[in-house]
């Protein structure tokens, strides 16, 4: 444990890209910079844990149609946070607004405040590219680049200008993604020749090669068999030692197995019954959500009675 801790503290220098965001949005001075991410508390009752994201009344709409309405929640440091809920309730939308991937949809609009370590990631001076360097993303369908395995992993560090020996960076990322032994002899092969599960772990390796602080995963196992799924779940539990992870999943067992916190979203009709949007119904410790949910709709959903 002590060994682990010293390693933690000496490991990462202050996350430069994250600091950029803080400086850019002018909140740097408001946050307590003497607290480094390494020292953040990640265990214990929720109110004592350190926050990675603070969402306050976040709403997302696509060209006037609201998809997610009024979500307020805290996402904690070095926790795995699961988003569950029926299809169309806005899980992906909410997830993609955390690293500004929604900017790619011209009609998408985010309201409310979305703070990352106290800094507004939708602040006027914030560059979405910087946000995505710190907050990485793994997609539902494995989407390796049509390049060699090596180049897939090296692309991120090269473009974001991470210094160091590229061979080492690639090996380290592949090792941490649990893929090194399977691919070390064919690093120059095209990534499309790998199995789906391997491709997805390659995408995870690609993501951790740029050393993000948070990894967002949108149904990362939905296209995979149970064995690949188990490998990725193990991987998530390992990655949790260094990264905060937010995962969208339709698999209740998966949420129960890996996550620390679970948020349940559901499609709600507006008061005038004209349109529907996703709302956060309940957000709590995973153990509480799955054993003793506070809302009957949550209970119905996880016990398979609706959705």
């Amino acid at each position: 444990m002590t060994n682990n801790l010293t390693q933690e503290i000496t490991r990462t220098p202050p996350r430069s890209a994250g600091d950029d965001i803080k400086e850019a949005s002018g909140v740097y001075d408001q946050t307590d910079i003497s607290v480094r991410p390494e020292e953040f508390r990640q265990r214990g009752p929720a109110e004592h844990r350190e926050k990675t994201f603070e969402l306050r009344n976040v709403s997302v709409s696509y060209g006037g149609n609201r998809a997610v309405h009024d979500v307020s929640m805290d996402i904690f440091h070095k926790n795995i946070t699961a988003l569950i809920g029926p299809s169309g309730c806005g899980k992906s939308t909410l997830l993609r607004s955390l690293n500004r991937m929604n900017d790619l949809v011209p009609s998408a609009k985010v309201e409310g405040s979305l703070l990352y370590h106290g800094a507004d990631i939708y602040g006027p001076k914030v560059d979405p590219v910087q946000v995505r360097k710190v907050i990485g993303m793994v997609f539902q369908k494995p989407n390796p680049f049509p390049k060699s395995i090596y180049d897939n992993v090296a692309f991120g560090p090269r473009t974001t200008g991470i210094k160091g020996d590229m061979d080492d960076i690639v090996e380290e990322a592949l090792r941490r993604a649990g893929l090194w032994d399977e691919v070390k002899d064919r690093l120059d092969d095209n990534a499309y020749g790998m199995s789906g599960g391997q491709q997805q772990r390659l995408c995870i390796a690609r993501c951790i090669a740029v050393e993000p602080d948070v990894i967002l995963m949108d149904e990362p196992c939905s296209a995979l068999d149970p064995i690949s799924t188990a490998r990725i779940e193990d991987l998530m539990l390992e990655l949790k030692e260094r990264y905060s992870i937010v995962i969208v999943t339709h698999n209740m067992q998966q949420a129960a197995r890996v996550s620390d916190m679970t948020a349940f979203l559901m499609v709600e009709l507006t008061a005038d019954e004209k349109s529907r949007w996703g709302e956060l119904i309940e957000y709590d410790d995973t153990s509480k959500i799955f054993t003793n949910p506070g809302d009957s709709r949550t209970e119905d959903y996880i016990s398979g009675r609706v959705g």
């Binding site: 790619l104 590219v129 995505r132 997609f139 680049f145 991120g156 473009t159």
Partner: peptide, 14 residues
Amino acid sequence: PPSIREGSLALGAT
């Protein structure tokens, strides 16, 4: 495929 662009942008590429 758009997924290639998304994958690249999600890594912090401009």
